[in-house]
Simulated assay, not measured.
Amino acid sequence: RAQDFYQEIASNYDLRNSGNLVSTHLTTVAQLQTIREQKSILRILDLGGGTGKLIAIHFFNEEEITWTYIDSCPAMAAEFRRNLCGYPLGRKSEVVVDDLNRALPQLDAGSYDVIVMSLVLSSMAEPPDFALLERLLSPDGSLIITDINPGYTRDAPLYKVWVDGTIVALRTRPVDPFEVIRQASTANLQMTELKTIGGDSTYYSFLTVFRSNGIRSTDAAGDGHQRSVHRRLAPGP
């Protein structure tokens, strides 16, 4: 139960990030910055956005970015709000607390220039429907996915954290970058970049970028109508 795990560790999550983990997030930030340079207005959908401290906060002063954040963990969402409170991006952010697979069908088609899933797939019991992701992108939109080398996850599947003298752990799922590419291709998404991250002989993580080909998928909600997410997090203290 990833929601319970991240609820337990949210307040200390950013204290234990390794250099390779930070590098993974910064590679995502660099991709977003490149896209930002090409667009005067940018609409970002951040799936499983956590505390926001390693990706969203880099855009804290942006007036022309709108940030839709979805995370199933209320404590993580509260940290996200707290980290961006009082800044332009905080005012431009929509925070949704919900399971990703439940929230995605409720979002409006073609509403996002970028969808980000940074180190999220390995924490999900079931991967998302890539056709739903494709449906949400603007005609030239990008999907950015990063995750851990699946070899590491197979060798050490338990993500362990000490909390008040007790270990809590999440059993993570190996994410094969080539399976990600296969699922994205099936959903009419074209891969534009694949890179590995980490300076050791065995790479630590990978980044993939996909581009919408402009062919809209059938409305995944099944009724031909767009829906808007209605679950909101009340402002934190």
Rank of each mutant, 00 (worst) to 15 (best):
Q3V: 14
F5C: 02
Y6K: 10
N12F: 03
N12Q: 09
Y13A: 11
V29L: 03
A30P: 04
T34C: 12
I35R: 13
S40P: 01
I41R: 10
R43F: 13
G50P: 03
G52F: 01
L54C: 07
H58V: 05
H58C: 05
W67E: 01
S72L: 11
E79Q: 05
R82M: 08
R82H: 06
R91K: 13
S93W: 01
E94D: 10
V96P: 06
D99A: 12
L100K: 09
A103I: 00
L104S: 06
L107Y: 00
D108M: 00
A109T: 06
A109E: 06
A109S: 14
G110F: 01
S111L: 06
V114K: 12
S118G: 05
S118Y: 05
L119A: 15
L119F: 07
S123Q: 00
M124R: 11
F130Y: 15
F130Q: 08
E134M: 02
E134P: 08
L136W: 04
L143H: 13
D147V: 07
I148V: 13
P150V: 01
T153V: 10
D155S: 14
P157H: 14
L158W: 07
Y159G: 09
K160W: 03
V161L: 01
D164A: 14
G165V: 01
T166N: 05
V175L: 13
V175R: 14
D176T: 09
D176Y: 04
T186I: 02
T186H: 06
T186N: 12
L189V: 08
D200F: 06
T202C: 11
Y204K: 02
F206E: 11
L207H: 07
F210T: 09
R211D: 15
R211A: 14
S217M: 13
D219G: 09
G222F: 08
G222R: 09
H225G: 11
R232M: 02
R232L: 01
L233I: 09
P237F: 02
